[in-house]
């Protein structure tokens, strides 16, 4: 449905994306994951024909972004990073304008707007001026705009930003429901969001695709390199020997905790050995104060993904 080939885009001297390629099948929900300024928005802006790439190309629903932008624009609904709202119109007027410029014929317009209002849960505010709405509602008006006229392809740039937890769940449910007969690309920097909604993930970092996988595989890959943190009281040397005794331990750091004889060990293991570790430490007569796993923050995940040898 969407075919991206070696997209490169420069803003003046600055490179925003470089050789980005991926494909999205019909009915699939693809997550673009990456830290801020990674090039997610740029990729989306190119796919919605907001701006052309410096080089490379893409096909959306068989139409070329260079030659047939109008066809693509007709088929796609786009929610930009900042919802493009006219603050002095009310919600209905705004959606009415969007329906008109999307070319919804007059007899069907009212119904199309009602459907969009229902999907984005805007019923209570449809007569309110957009400028007076809260951030969450503005985001939903933006979403309603993208959903208007039921486009085949949805491109959503951080759709859940600014929403409260309940709304986030609602929107994720909505996106999941829309997948199947709609093709969706959504960007986010929230890992769980991708896990919950997307069928496949493309990770972009510094303008390049660093990984492309299903969320399941990706999480498994990351779980393998989870850290285990131990706080042990007693002889530090004995403790470190005990830990080193396990062949699964790949990396070990220790740091003394201030004002006590406790030592904190941080280790990376190939499999989960917490139960054996705990037993071994206690049999040696050491005091175990803490044993927990620590998952990586997004930045660290990117570090793992960008440095090849660390990917398990």
């Amino acid at each position: 449905m969407i075919e991206v080939r070696e997209l490169t885009r420069y803003y003046g001297e600055k490179r925003a994306i470089h050789n980005v390629s991926f494909e999205v099948q019909k009915g699939e929900i693809l997550g673009l994951l990456g830290p801020n300024a990674a090039g997610k928005t740029t990729t989306m802006k190119i796919l919605t024909c907001y701006m052309p790439p410096t080089s490379g190309g893409a096909k959306v629903a068989g139409f070329d972004i260079w030659d047939q932008p109008m066809e693509i624009k007709t088929l796609t609904g786009y929610l930009p990073e900042n919802p493009p709202l006219y603050s002095d119109l009310n919600v209905w007027e705004y959606l009415d304008f969007v329906a008109k410029i999307k070319g919804v014929p007059a007899p069907k317009r009212k119904e199309a707007i009602s459907v969009a209002i229902e999907k984005a849960a805007l019923g209570d505010v449809q007569k309110q001026v957009v400028g007076s709405l809260s951030k969450g509602f503005k985001q939903r008006v933006g979403l309603g705009q993208a959903l208007l006229n039921d486009p085949q392809i949805l491109i959503l740039d951080e759709p859940t930003v600014g929403l409260d937890p309940r709304q986030i769940i609602e929107i994720r449910e909505l996106i999941k429901k829309l997948g199947g007969d709609h093709t969706i690309i959504l960007s986010t920097h929230i890992l769980p969001e991708v896990e919950m909604t997307c069928g496949r993930v493309v990770i972009i970092n510094e303008g390049e695709v660093v990984a492309e996988d299903t969320p399941g595989n990706l999480t498994r890959r990351l779980k393998g390199s989870e850290r285990t943190v131990l706080e042990i009281g007693g002889d530090a040397k004995v403790a470190s020997e005990v830990i080193k005794g396990f062949s699964e331990v790949q990396k070990l750091d220790h740091r003394k905790i201030d004002k006590s004889d406790h030592v904190r060990f941080t280790l990376e293991t190939s499999t989960d050995i917490r139960h054996d570790l705990a037993k071994a430490i206690i049999t040696k007569g050491l005091n175990l104060y803490e044993l927990r796993t620590e998952s990586y923050s997004l930045e660290e995940i990117f570090l793992h993904l960008t440095t090849k040898e660390e990917v398990a």
């Binding site: 919605t48 907001y50 109008m70 709202l85 410029i101």
Partner: peptide, 17 residues
């Protein structure tokens, strides 16, 4: 300034419109 050009340029509107 308000970014609504993104709406205008990504819906099937021509520059002439």
């Amino acid at each position: 300034r308000s970014g609504t050009v993104e709406l205008l340029y990504t819906t099937p509107l021509s520059v002439g419109n």
